[in-house]
Design a protein around this nucleic acid. Structure first.
Lengths: 355, 355
DNA sequence: CTGAAAGCGCTTACAG
DNA sequence: CTGAAAGCGCTTACAG
């Protein structure tokens, strides 16, 4: 009997000894409870604000937490309570120059609220995205933020029935789902309008992947601005692109080879604008002296390109922050009342009035 | 008695009903065991390859797993087994143009091995990094990959006593720790050598934050190359920078204002080279006609800068992949035998022979 | 307001 | 080779 008890008690010190040897101090909630002279339930309730607890017990627990340096184990919390305090974030590529800012905004906002983001990549494929979502679910994230991507609206709506979902880049209404979309149409209009104001009439447009709604909207904005200005639309001036620098460069080569006259280029994103700039440079065409160039997104590099690129500012950091705040609201059972700032056109040095 | 039993049994269907209503199917290991007619222990052992199991039971379990679509819950696994199959990754900024590639390499390699990366940012502050490491530990990651940063060697060595650690950007030997360092000295030498070969003698150097070992090494490489070529070192040609575009631009302005003659600039990273290029552009100096310019790192933007930047290729994607593979090796109890590729200088269009 | 107890979904000695 | 049992560190009805 005594031996058994000894053995039983020995288990704890043994564990602690091991932990100590590893330079670690895995203080558990039970230890805090013991130190404070209350039950684990009470400690848990104080931790979670789940119930009102007598002030003196609360103080004793707080003191114990401090002195022991207790940090709740999110893993155990996840198993027991069903909350892991982690939020899945589906991005297309963890190192996208475009989404980088959004990831940072998400991380900061979530971390400040005690949540951890779990980033997974979709690699621009619906299949990959679906797999990544599965990883997220198997990790029991409390919610999922989807940065655009190719998942169908139906898939997202279905997902939202089991988890709060925040999605960017589309307009979707469904229970448990909040969507956030940037006004790409207005952005496209703004950029084109800027060029028109400078006297340009022959304005080429390099499209993004037109399977994406945002690419479509930007194109629509371009057309609407031309139309509003009474400029006839010329199909020869619309070149296909896919949002990569490479495609921007190729588009310019084609445009030049086609012989169609133009005095300005509007690339549907900055990366293609950079490629276009290089394409022009190769043909000894100067920006903005010979050709005015505008981009879209205002990625970090736009400020230091040569010349600094005039572009539509896409508030990606805010996008991330707002997406995260919307998720936090959803988690709190609230209905997010948040929206993205309107597009602004940033005039830098890549455009000039038509002589 | 009957009622109790009913109530007891009702719990399961209730839960399942809820789950079903949410469109979810949280199949548990216990369900698999029941379906296969074995004990949970056996299922667990098959899952983990922890013991040899009779072929027929194994087949039955595999079949049950397939038909039920069972996915083990990593959260429960983490609690029970002490392994979470997640690896913490401490980066400085989730949206760094430089580290982006490394994060992608880490993600791909880890994901393929069934692990999930948990990215946290240090924001270039040791205090922040320490806090982020705590988040990682509280989440019970199985190991931590540290991408440079400001943590002391001692802190990392201590960390490695409780967890496998892989650190980049320094040379450190300690139990449970593997370090991976790029030959920045050689890279600095290579870039300078390229300029020397083109006939340049007055080569300015824009440093990184010299508190970082890599920045120091690059500077050392620059000096060594000059010395080897018998070129006197001129302190007026060494300008302080901090790895930002902004600082590169400022450095060039200072250099120009100082009146010190020079025909080439070696910026300790590409971002500063971009800033320097803009600074030169502002003063109507052309690259490479008037000034040759080289960078370091070969970030994505270098290929499409104008002109495309000659630079030292820093294999960041491989860095990430190798760091992840080293972690996997450490986790398997092996000693990683991995190293980074040697630096290569990439000649593009920002340099030319001195007339 | 607060405890005792059961349970979250696994893993792992402990015994066959 | 395989089960029954205990336990990982929490949370949450259930009873006071």
């Amino acid at each position: 009997m005594k031996n058994q008890k000894e053995a039983g008690r020995a288990a704890r010190p043994g564990r602690k000894a091991v932990a100590a040897a590893r330079g670690e101090g895995p203080v558990t909630l039970a230890m805090v409870a013991r130190a404070a002279g209350v039950s684990p339930s009470t400690v848990s309730r104080i931790l979670n604000g789940t119930a009102v607890v007598a002030k003196e017990k609360r103080d004793a627990v707080d003191a114990a937490i401090d002195s022991l340096g207790f940090v709740p184990n999110p893993v155990a919390r996840g198993l027991a309570g069903g909350r892991t305090l982690s939020i899945g974030v589906l991005t297309q590529s963890i190192d996208s120059p475009f989404y980088g800012g959004a990831l940072g905004g998400i991380e900061d906002t979530l971390t400040a609220a005690g949540y951890s983001p779990l980033f997974v990549s979709g690699h621009w494929s619906a299949a990959h995205e679906a797999r990544s979502i599965e990883v997220l679910r198997s990790r029991r994230v409390d919610g999922i933020i989807v940065l655009t991507g190719r998942l169908s609206d139906a898939a997202l709506t279905a997902l939202a029935t089991s988890l709060p979902v925040v999605v960017t880049g589309r307009k979707l209404k469904a229970p448990g789902l909040f969507s956030l979309s940037f006004d790409n149409f207005e952005g496209g209009r703004l950029a084109t309008h800027h060029l028109l104001q400078l006297g340009h009439r022959r304005i080429a447009f390099i499209t993004g992947d037109t399977r994406h709604p945002d690419a479509k909207e930007r194109l629509r904005g371009y057309r609407a601005a031309l139309e509003a200005a009474g400029v006839a639309h010329d199909a020869a001036l619309v070149l296909p692109g896919d949002y990569t620098e490479q495609s921007g460069q190729v588009a310019v080569e084609r445009l030049l080879d086609s012989g169609a006259p133009f005095s300005a280029i509007f690339a549907a994103n900055d990366q293609m604008a950079f490629g276009a700039a290089l394409g022009l440079h190769r043909r000894r065409l100067r920006v903005p002296q010979d050709v005015s160039l505008v981009g879209f997104d205002d990625v970090a590099g736009a400020l230091f390109s040569i010349p600094p690129l005039s572009t539509v500012h896409h508030p990606v950091v805010e996008l991330g922050q707002i997406a995260a705040r919307a998720m936090l609201a959803l988690l709190a059972g609230e209905t997010p009342a948040l929206a993205l700032p309107a597009p602004r056109f940033i005039v830098r040095e890549s455009t000039r009035a038509l002589a």
